[in-house]
Nucleic acid binder design. Structure first.
Lengths: 338, 338
DNA sequence: TGAAATAATGTAAACGGTTACAGTAAACGG
DNA sequence: CCGTTTACTGTAACCGTTTACATTATTTCA
């Protein structure tokens, strides 16, 4: 298999249709009118020859890739399905392609980000997918980017789309305190440096403080917004501290909630009788967990969609540095005791 | 923002380092040895200039894109997270990039598949993402492809990775019949023409037949392997047929199971007392649904990983037409009555 | 020691499009 | 009726790499 592409080029089309390559190119890109008979001939020839323009050649000549990149820190969370779905729908509608890549701080020593100005027209940067200094230099070079679930650091004029975390978390934790009388509330952090995590932690701390509950750092674990890690963290906590040391758990997000639920179930801890559990995101399965999960509804698909639309506005030279924070709402279900 | 890329090219590097562009290229690609002092100089110059090779130019000259494509029929299912995760891990390890695109039969009239030989080095085709005729012509041109959750049609020599559907489904449905005494078993199909769906349907029919239960076409609905569609289908069935006409539901997959559960809950139908429910895939949330879902464990992440590895073998000129069917196993939980 | 092999580098032609510039023919306007 | 605009089309340079081929310097070895 020699992979001799032997593919048909624009010159083949031009020759067959008796016109110049420039005319073919113009017809394809619809940027200069072409006489109707030429158009018809080109239609025929192009489908007869099954001509498909070679992406790399177009990219090189036009200095556009027609590709946008989505940089994630991992792909371990059901959360990414609605996000991807929102992004992909817009990208497809625009006739662009989407490169999905994962990249995290720890890879940084070894290698460069796999996507950037060299192979995309713009980037959707989720969370801490890129360090501040990368953002600075890319932004300085005028490369279009939109931040997702992260607000711009250092007053960088980069548009951003995220959801409200702090107030809603505070409200939710206060619900636990005021309505259900909880005082020993476990919190499972997300990944270090991830804004959703730090903001939810801020909301958590502020709720405790506002209600005169001292903060016990032993009650703050690392759940990483991941099922398995949350499961292990919860198990470890239980074997270290025993079960009487807490009365409720804010799992950080719904995915972690599943790991927590698993651990609690396995230890015979009843929910919500022995421990209340709350999550964040309201993923599709949340209403059908056992018990149904009290959580915060986040418009994740909409975040993906709006962020991508913003990115295309940037590509069309409408600069912006708007920070969009979409509203969230608490969905009360049984896991908190309601 | 004029997007004047003004980016540094290989010529800038060559000039600065006092060598020819060919030498720089060879050093970058590590395909011809370069003297140590030149190598050192290039290292310095390249990082000083922050040189990043221009992807399109490389692609054009080398006739490789270093990109592989994943063609899905949609992004509506949590099932895709483990699949994507398996795929992306391998792609990243190989230093390639991944384009994710959705495309389905109904788009076919309007437009071409967004990914193919013109912008990728190979394709992972999920399910019915491409029609038989597309597969035939791409395969004939020697374009590397691996089918995922679909076996090759028309004896095409295309490698394929999927999971065992028929036997396991038959076994699971027979469990409903023989252990729990069910006889009126609802089945929610997946998308038309999707092999997982047709095979699960085959397993379902064969279980009924083997146990002397006549097949009632009224008990076969379209759930599309989607939460919302399954929910609607179930609601519609209930309002049309009443609740006494079935004693159990095979939802097709775990995502659809959530929709079914929702509908049954809302109608006050108890699970498993009034109706048993079974799913397929064993997604992460399955053990924590209410009630815990009896389902089939499918190694979805492994499917993604193996399929991608096969694709890279193809890229490295190791042809193959192996059809890999990974084993599945039943996980008994409470939703079937166990 | 001199011919032949080897190692490192350079030159320049692709790769397959886009687009600035120029040209021609037809339509228009006074 | 003739200068001007308008509508199309062609020529050829260019986008930033890779790589076949040529060249030179250095080893190797009979």
């Amino acid at each position: 298999m020699t992979r001799r592409s032997s593919s048909v080029t624009i010159r083949d089309v031009a020759r067959e249709a008796g016109v110049s390559v420039a005319t073919v190119s113009r017809y394809i890109n619809q940027n200069t009118p072409v006489s109707t008979d030429v158009a018809e001939r080109l239609n025929v020839v192009m489908s007869k020859l099954r001509y498909v323009p070679h992406a790399a050649a177009r990219n090189l000549a036009s200095r556009k890739t027609r590709v946008i990149g989505l940089l994630l820190n991992n792909l371990h969370n059901d959360f990414f399905v609605p996000l991807l779905n929102g992004v992909e729908a817009v990208v497809r509608k625009k006739g662009y392609n989407l490169i999905v890549a994962t990249y995290h701080a720890s890879s940084r020593n070894h290698m460069q980000p796999p996507i950037g100005p060299h192979n995309t027209d713009g980037l959707l940067v989720f969370s801490d997918g890129l360090m501040d200094e990368d953002l600075v230099s890319l932004n300085a070079s005028g490369f279009p980017m939109v931040l997702v679930h992260r607000t711009p650091p250092l007053h960088l004029p980069i548009p951003s789309v995220t959801v409200e975390n702090i107030e809603i978390t505070k409200k939710l934790v206060e619900h636990l305190i005021q309505v259900h009388g909880k005082r020993r509330i476990l919190f499972l952090r997300g990944p270090i440096n991830q804004e959703d995590s730090t903001r939810r932690e801020a909301g958590y701390r502020s709720a405790l403080q506002a209600n005169g509950i001292p903060i016990d750092e032993n009650l703050i674990l690392n759940g990483d917004f991941e099922r398995d890690i949350a499961y292990k963290a919860m198990n470890e906590f239980l074997s270290r501290q025993g079960r009487a040391t807490f009365d409720s758990v804010f799992t950080g997000d719904d995915d972690a909630a599943i790991g927590v639920l698993k651990s609690l179930h396995e230890h015979g801890i009843r929910i919500p009788e022995d421990a209340a559990v709350i999550g964040f995101d309201d993923l599709g399965f949340a209403p059908f967990l056992n018990p149904p999960l009290t959580t915060v509804r986040a418009p994740t698909q909409t975040v993906g969609q709006i962020a991508t639309e913003r990115l295309f506005e940037l590509l069309e030279n409408h600069p912006s540095n708007e920070v969009i924070i979409l509203p969230t709402e608490i969905i009360y279900r049984r896991s908190c005791g309601c």
